[in-house]
Design a protein around this nucleic acid. Structure first.
Lengths: 246, 246
DNA sequence: GCGCGGCCTTGATCCATATCAATTGACCTC
DNA sequence: GAGGTCAATTGATATGGATCAAGGCCGCGC
């Protein structure tokens, strides 16, 4: 009968929160989740400084999170694909420490924290899953610091593309052909470089035959994965995370 | 009778985990904590890749955590002062994703995660405190990303000093005079710059009368806090965290 | 208290990437 | 399909900080 989405029938649930929950437990979680209307491209999911009341799971689409510097320009802290959680960093804070904006039409599941908190007292698995997710985010941040403080422009772009590729692959999409939902300026901002440099590295990769020269700038096709992987000069922990052998 | 340390008599407990636990609850936490011999300067607390079994609370001293790049050089991800937790980022991972090394003689409380996990099921306050601490760490990482991708050499050093100052102040020490326990090379590594640049910025700050020309390179005295704060060009969220008005 | 070795500072040079300035391209509206 | 707008590319130039190369200082061991 029902066409509505539930955790139990959601194709993302092996990647999202309910991982390893029993059906009855999953129903409990399902009961506290709010599913609103789709967020259109450019719309805010929440704004830095607003009272923190919910975390969000991305169901479809992409979200960028960013903080604002004193001068008012933004620092993108992450891109969030389907099945990923947004807003975990607000734990401990009365307000959201970052803003979240949809990069394309996006559907999210809203999870009120007070309810989540209460429920995680009852379900040890859920509690562990939450801590696991935060732990993973901490480790991703550390890799990002490594990237920002040690890597060259080419290494940054290569790492970025490999990271996206691995995430698409885990979701059952192609790990070699995908569409970037973010603008060059977003990539530049996220990776701590100028737009022009991002652009130049992309064309260089195309000339070197690492990427295919695609019709649109946002369509990516990785031709030489080996070369791209070498370019990235990944740390061991990064390989592990991306599922790259050696 | 007893001279041993317990959470209930530890001067750090308002800053550490047991925050807002009742005495009986604190005793439960106290029971699972292991207090080993002091770690000497240069010794490892744990090494990247070792099985993750415990988080550590610094009781006295300083610890640096760092990951290794492919080429084998280190990327410092944080400095941890008394009352701060080390190893939270290992949640979700079977092994420590980073190494931890003492920068001076250091005493720690070791908290086995399986026990902590079980206990946090019983104590909602402890559970929230854990999530809060991880949330805070996530936000600190975000500020670090901002620093690494947007700030100039001077802004980095100024931010770093103000951050340390605020943490010392919260512990009841002077926020204007303190001793750096880390080498210039550690600061450089952490802030993503060359040792030489760190050195130059320090001398520039001394010439400008922002810092006092101290006997030893590691003794810091902030003379002009206002100027240093301006130099840092902090984001609003950073001010909030450091307790700086406007 | 003397000498050794690592840590720190200082100066000179270089280079990766930012910045500035057009140009091109994609898409949208009328 | 002409014109407008915004995103992306490309080229020329500038620069902050890295790198290279000496010294100087300080703490530590003998």
């Amino acid at each position: 009968m029902s066409l509505t989405t539930h955790c139990s029938n959601c194709s993302l649930h092996p990647l999202c929160l309910p991982l390893s929950l029993k059906t009855s437990e999953m129903d409990k979680l399902d009961a506290i989740i709010r599913r609103g209307r789709p967020i259109k491209k450019g719309e805010l999911l929440f704004a830095q400084g607003e009272p923190f009341d919910s975390v969000f799971a991305v169901r479809t689409g992409t979200v960028k999170t960013y903080t604002l510097t004193q001068e008012g320009d933004e620092q993108i802290t992450g891109f969030h694909l389907a099945s990923e959680l947004v807003g975990l960093d607000a734990y401990d804070s009365p307000v959201y420490p970052a803003s979240a904006r949809a990069l394309e039409t996006t559907n999210v599941c809203e999870i009120p924290v007070d309810r989540l908190d209460a429920l995680s007292g009852q379900l040890p698995e859920l509690r562990r899953q939450l801590l696991r997710l935060m732990g993973r985010e901490l480790r991703e941040d550390q890799q990002m610091m490594l990237l920002l403080s040690k890597k060259s422009a080419e290494e940054r772009i290569a790492s970025f593309l490999l990271n996206l590729a691995a995430r698409f692959r885990r979701r059952g999409y192609s790990g070699t052909q995908f569409r970037l939902t973010m603008a060059r300026s977003d990539i530049a901002n996220y990776l701590g470089m100028a737009v022009e440099t991002v652009s130049r590295v992309f064309t260089r990769f195309q000339r070197q035959g690492i990427l295919a020269d695609s019709s649109s700038a946002r369509d990516i096709e990785i031709v030489d994965l080996t070369a791209l992987t070498q370019m990235a000069s990944l740390a061991d922990c990064e390989r592990l995370e991306l599922g790259i052998s050696a």
